[in-house]
Design a protein around this nucleic acid. Structure first.
Ligand SMILES: [Mn+2]
Ligand SMILES: [Mn+2]
Ligand SMILES: [Zn+2]
Ligand SMILES: [Zn+2]
Lengths: 161, 161
DNA sequence: TACCTAAGTTGAAATGATTACAAATCGGGT
DNA sequence: ACCCGATTTGTAATCATTTCAACTTAGGTA
């Protein structure tokens, strides 16, 4: 449960028959501590500080291996780059199209049972919302007061609950 | 209702204050006829045949404009390229990770009301499932019989209903 | 109808994410 | 300590998307 303790990550890898390497431990630990859904470049830039020899290719290779074994999730919520999340617990996500931040959304979902009339074999379930986050809405309201300049695509929501 | 009649697309554009251009009509009609969630290159390759001067940049520009006005949806279901869908009716999608096909999934979803405790302004709701489609499952079973070679990541689903 | 201009289109070049590949290194079993 | 297949690394493709400036056009106006 101690996210800073390397031993648990060693065990997670061993349990899955994956070799234990410093890079895998590094990346696994990073994702479990930083729950802000980083992209490859963000992870790379951060981890390179403690390990200057780290290669970006390793980040790609490692994330692919970890994802294949259910240790990380790949979020395809952005139109451009993949974002990553530790663990395999399904939960919903909200992407703010202004600041590009991804928020965890904890709501009930009847689709979690991962079955679709038995015809498809479902490995992953993703629930994505996109729009404007509270912080950007607030920022926009402030600017509106000063100047009549709206954030692109930011209009009043007229849907009723 | 006649997907081949250009007039309805002209009207859709005019209703939104968008200029009516042959390229926009072409793309709009294409997406309304081909409901297989194509990517930019697929659209480009297809439309180029009837209009050799068409530019890929125009596909990007047009899709962006149409998406902004709710005439098309951008699906970020694949890790690599964006896929597109006509209209703005929300529905779920299934991505087969073997053949890369995207299926429409018609199921009830309680999140369609597009509100999240009033804190976020939700513009889009996406429900994505990923796994193996019936066709690929069948194909895989056949090959398994001949040779003991499994499609990568294709394991038995043990979830109960 | 002829004209004007902002909006749209085009193609080439830049950018950025991801993949391919081959050589160097390393984990873990003997 | 040794060995070998797995992993890491750096470089060079590849591929989707964006930028940009010149050219063209849709649609409003006289
Ligand atoms: Mn998350
Ligand atoms: Mn669809
Ligand atoms: Zn935001
Ligand atoms: Zn398939």
């Amino acid at each position: 449960m101690d996210k800073n303790n390397t031993d648990i990550y060693v065990q997670l890898l061993k349990d899955r028959g994956l070799r234990v390497t410093p890079q895998r431990l590094q990346i696994l630990k990073y994702l479990n501590i930083h729950k802000n859904h980083p992209d490859v470049t963000t992870i790379f830039t951060a981890l390179r500080k403690e390990n200057p020899a780290l290669s970006k290719t390793t980040i790609y290779n490692t994330l692919e291996a970890l994802a294949e074994h259910g240790l990380v999730q790949v979020l395809t919520i952005t139109p451009t780059e993949n974002r990553f999340d530790a663990g395999d617990r399904m939960h919903h996500h909200f992407l703010c199209k202004h600041c590009n931040k991804i928020y965890d959304i904890e709501i009930e979902c009847p689709h979690l049972n991962r079955m679709l009339e038995g015809e498809f074999k479902v490995d992953e379930v993703h629930g994505y919302f996109k729009g404007s986050c509270p912080s950007c809405l607030k920022e926009n309201a402030k600017n509106d007061h000063i100047q009549n300049k709206n954030i692109k695509g930011l209009k009043k929501d007229t849907s009723k609950c």
